[in-house]
Design a protein around this nucleic acid. Sequence first.
RNA 1: GAUCCGGUAGCUCAGCUGGUAGAGCAUUUGACUUUUAAUCAAAGGGUCCCGGGUUCGAACCCCGGCCGGAUCACCA
Length: 501
Amino acid sequence: MASLGLSEEVKFKSTSGKDAMSLIDFVGTLRTAPFQEFGKEQRPDVRIAGRFMGQRGPFAKLQDSDGKMQLYMKKGTIGTDETEQSLNDSLVKLLHIGDFIGVEGFLFSTQTGEVTLHVQKLTFLGKSLRNLPIVKTDKEGNVHDAFTDPELRYRQRYVDLVVNPHVREAFIKRTKMYNSIREFLNEKGYLEVETPILQPLYGGAAARPFKTHHNTLDMTLYLRIANELYLKRLIVGGFDGVYEFSKDFRNEGMSRFHNPEFTQIELYVAYKDYEWMMNLVEEMLEKVAIDTNGTTKLQVGDNLIDFKRPWKRFSMYEAIEHFTGIDISEMDENELRATAKQLHVPIDESMGKGKLIDEIFGEKCEAQLIQPTFITDYPVEMSPLAKKHRTKEGLVERFEAICNGKEICNSFSELNDPIDQRERFESQLELGKRGDDEAMVLDEDFLRALEYGMPPTAGLGIGMDRLAMVMTNSNSIQDVLFFPQMKPESKPVPEAEAEGE
RNA sequence: GAUCCGGUAGCUCAGCUGGUAGAGCAUUUGACUUUUAAUCAAAGGGUCCCGGGUUCGAACCCCGGCCGGAUCACCA
């Protein structure tokens, strides 16, 4: 904590007559970025504002949202008369790392060639009472005293963002990713929509929900686990293409790939199928890679991943045969069970045919798919909302894109046969009765919507956090969420409370 | 939920076999008005995560707990 009292600082400011420059003057005025390409000649009347980030002799660093700029604050030169100069010299001595100041002066290039603002006017704008961790980088690019403790970084993201430029860059990339997708979909004429987060029935995925209660209606509501069923209602309503960036909530385990709240984009387009959607995904994610990183080739961990079209496509059976040498396409449940055992895939007795196939794939194939790859044609048991395959018995028209060993999207030709959909829900209910707590619940209103008729539709869901991890080369979902979920800090009981009321 | 690792100054970390709590940066004061992580000098700064236990003596050993990370499990 700074020993300099805040009141002292404020008093100083109020007596120094430095309010002449209004705050408005710093809003929307020049930032540091335009000056980084500065040449040799001086450039007058430059005004910037930001955090004071330390001083050595007359040279100081100012940091704003674009980066850092050097200031030259020579004693006795800031201000128009001696009184002001003397006050400013005192103010400079009182500055603390993290304080906000506004400065005005002329730009010049120092002996070492660094673009520097020679400060002629100085305005105090805000006080920092806490010591920011000082991260320094030397000529070789080595980082000293980095602010690295993950717990502190996540709990105090504001500090992380101030002192770790790579962190803010990752979040800027995340936003670019959203913008890129919006631009792509809007250009195709699809409508960005919003649907309920509080839902009386949770559907569209298999997951345990968060449950809450509405007082006035006196009813249970769930935080959505997906928005699929609502977007399809909109397709029934006549929109040709709708999408939503959807914050979804799943009351399940946490890991470096799972946060209880996360974001998916879901897209539904009428009169299309999953083949068409595969092409859209390739085109869109290639663009996203370029828009976020300037290239289709991204270094992710140890892997160089190339989003350039076209991507490899495997059916799930082909993928399993490719990685295990076993053709399971004609096997019944008992043969699949034997095969899983032979491959040392952990299984249990409750697993049906579809689950066994999915398990073999997940265990033997998924992690080995590094380059973006489409896996198509999933078992019908795993996909109660997907349309049955037009030629392959027991399968649905579904694909996932796998990248860096993880699923990044899921898509199918949507089931638009209301009778089939009712049967699928009913078999989900059967699974539920047999103890599958992930089985979907039957949504009568959704079925009613389908009964009015839904055009053939292609649907897509992309895990935005997973995609952001790839696009920013992040190892944990926490690195692409500003405020990842954490347990509360344990606080010592304040003394006032300990003394009683 | 399981296993492993970690928690010491604002930050990054040392701390040996259990024996007075340490460094660098940051902060404060003074000098310096210069450059480019780190000028010099001095000073201040600690619930060693919490609670028990063992011991003459615990940051260190033991037990329990809290928080975090990794891996696994779970999660289509």
